[in-house]
Deep mutational scan, measured.
Amino acid sequence: MMAYMNPGPHYSVNALALSGPSVDLMHQAVPYPSAPRKQRRERTTFTRSQLEELEALFAKTQYPDVYAREEVALKINLPESRVQVWFKNRRAKCRQQRQQQKQQQQPPGGQAKARPAKRKAGTSPRPSTDVCPDPLGISDSYSPPLPGPSGSPTTAVATVSIWSPASESPLPEAQRAGLVASGPSLTSAPYAMTYAPASAFCSSPSAYGSPSSYFSGLDPYLSPMVPQLGGPALSPLSGPSVGPSLAQSPTSLSGQSYGAYSPVDSLEFKDPTGTWKFTYNPMDPLDYKDQSAWKFQIL
């Protein structure tokens, strides 16, 4: 009977010793046993002879290597770790002494450095960015050149030099007046198309007034536009458009034309069986010896 009264063996659950049927240790109110408190290391007290050895090595170098620390530790009968900690504390003490010396050398008012006064946003004049500046400075420094007289040679050079070769001289006033084509001369031969040399188009003023001019072949195509416009036809070669000034309004060009419109200028042929003959000019830059190549039959 006494065997049943004795408590059973101890069981360990999660490293906790349980005594038989008792489960009081598993209750929430019972805390787990805490780790033992780490003991504080005792402070090391250095003797005068030990301090002399350490100070002598510190005077040589503030960062001794492990071999120098072990050698000193053997002399003063201390572990190497204590020597390492002593050098660490000695360097910190040396830095603190240097900072105190710097503070003593500075004057009393030198510690508080005078800061520059901050400028207020409204006091300083700042350039306004509302208006974009002129990058080319046209509004201040540029002045347009004065327009020359209508009959000045410089204007003629600016007008005619675009179309004339570089080897030719500017046309005088008398020749510029001949550039304007007359109405009857352009409409006299509506079906004849003559190819003149390129030099005649640039230099010869008579080429624009003769039936064999460069633009005589364009007349049949330009004249039928007159009834559609409801007024006189516009002429690209009329009046002052080739003269001194090219800047004319469309209203000033509306009254200039080749001449009176005639039914002869239409595109319809009077004789459907007729042929169109292209007159060959020996001055043509295209060297075609066979003139029969310039004739064709309209079917």
Rank of each mutant, 00 (worst) to 15 (best):
P153T: 09
V85N: 13
A15S: 04
M26V: 08
L267P: 01
E52N: 05
S213H: 10
S210C: 11
R43A: 14
R176G: 03
V23Q: 01
P272A: 14
M2K: 03
V72L: 08
E173L: 11
G231Q: 00
A15R: 08
Q248C: 11
T279V: 07
S262W: 07
L51M: 10
L57C: 10
G183W: 12
T123N: 04
F58T: 13
R119L: 02
F46K: 13
A156R: 08
T155C: 10
L25Q: 01
S235P: 07
G178W: 15
A29F: 11
L57A: 05
E71F: 10
E80A: 09
S124W: 06
F215G: 01
K277P: 00
A181M: 13
L186W: 09
C132F: 04
P197I: 14
G274C: 06
S49M: 02
L179T: 06
T279P: 00
N6E: 01
P165N: 01
A3Q: 01
T123F: 01
Q228G: 07
S254I: 12
S213K: 08
A17D: 00
F58Y: 10
Q106E: 04
K118N: 03
P33V: 10
L267M: 06
G8S: 09
S238V: 11
Q100P: 09
T159D: 00
A166E: 01
L186H: 02
P153G: 08
I298E: 00
S213W: 14
Q39W: 15
V30A: 04
A114G: 02
S249F: 12
L237F: 08
S161E: 04
S152Y: 07
D134I: 04
R48I: 09
S223I: 14
G20A: 08
V160F: 10
T194M: 11
G209A: 10
D219A: 11
I138V: 08
L229P: 02
D271W: 13
R126H: 05
R91C: 14
R82E: 14
Q101C: 05
H10Y: 10
P79I: 15
K93L: 13
E55D: 08
P197V: 14
L237E: 00
Y261F: 09
V30R: 09
A3P: 00
Q50A: 10
S235L: 14
P107Y: 03
Q28E: 05
Q104P: 05
P220H: 08
E70W: 10
Q103E: 04
K38I: 09
P250H: 05
M26L: 08
G109R: 12
P220I: 15
G148T: 01
G8Y: 14
Q100W: 08
G122K: 10
P108T: 07
E55A: 13
G109S: 04
V131I: 05
Q28K: 11
P144A: 05
A189N: 04
A196E: 01
P282Q: 06
P127H: 07
F269R: 02
R48P: 08
F296D: 00
L146Q: 05
L229E: 01
K102W: 00
Y258P: 00
S235G: 07
L179C: 04
S128D: 07
V157S: 06
A177V: 12
G20V: 12
G243W: 12
R43N: 14
A200G: 05
E80K: 11
M26Y: 12
T273E: 02
L267Y: 07
F296C: 00
D134T: 04
L57E: 09
A174M: 09
P36T: 07
P282A: 03
S12D: 00
R90K: 07
C202A: 04
D287I: 14
V160P: 01
Q97N: 08
A233G: 03
P165Q: 01
Q228F: 15
K120F: 02
A121K: 04
Y288N: 09
V72P: 14
P285V: 06
T187N: 02
V85W: 15
F215N: 00
F87M: 05
V66D: 13
K38R: 09
K277W: 12
Q101K: 12
R119F: 04
P149C: 02
T47D: 14
P145W: 10
P133I: 06
L229I: 10
A121W: 07
A68T: 02
L229H: 03
K120Y: 01
V226C: 00
Q101N: 08
S238I: 15
P31A: 08
G231S: 03
V13R: 08
Q97M: 05
E53F: 03
L179F: 07
E70H: 09
Q105K: 09
T154D: 05
Q96L: 06
G243H: 09
R41F: 14
Q62K: 08
V264S: 02
L18Q: 00
L222I: 07
S19E: 01
G110H: 08
Y191H: 01
S210E: 01
S212A: 03
Y221L: 06
S141D: 02
S169N: 02
K118L: 02
R98V: 06
V160G: 00
D271S: 11
A17Q: 04
S182L: 15
Q297Y: 12
S199Y: 15
N89F: 11
V242T: 06
Q97C: 09
P236F: 11
T273K: 09
M2S: 01
H27T: 06
Q96H: 02
Y261T: 02
A207R: 05
G110Y: 03
G122E: 01
L186A: 01
C202Q: 02
Y221I: 07
S292D: 00
S266E: 04
K93E: 15
Q103K: 08
K277L: 15
V72S: 15
L186P: 01
A114N: 04
T61A: 11
L286S: 06
M283I: 10
Q256V: 10
K270Q: 11
V66Q: 12
A233F: 14
N77M: 10
V83Q: 13
K120S: 05
Y214G: 03
P227V: 15
S262L: 12
A68I: 07
G148I: 13
C202G: 06
V85H: 14
M283G: 06
L146A: 03
N77L: 08
Y67P: 04
F58R: 13
T47Q: 02
P145S: 08
F296R: 00
G109T: 02
K120A: 01
S19L: 11
M26R: 07
Y208D: 01
Q248S: 06
P127I: 06
M2I: 09
C202D: 00
R48K: 09
P184Y: 10
A56S: 03
D287T: 09
S204W: 15
W163I: 03
P7W: 14
P125C: 11
N77W: 12
F201H: 02
R43L: 15
P135I: 08
D219T: 13
S210M: 11
S252T: 06
E52P: 15
R95K: 04
S213G: 04
Y258L: 03
Q84A: 06
G274T: 01
T154L: 14
L57P: 14
Q256F: 15
S252E: 02
P250T: 04
S169V: 10
S245L: 13
G255I: 12
A29M: 11
P36R: 10
Y142S: 09
S206A: 06
F87Y: 13
F269Y: 01
A174T: 02
S81Y: 12
G230D: 03
T123Y: 00
L171Y: 02
L218M: 02
G230C: 13
F296I: 14
A200Y: 09
V23G: 03
A59S: 09
G122F: 07
L186T: 00
R37H: 09
K295M: 14
Q297S: 10
T123L: 06
E71M: 09
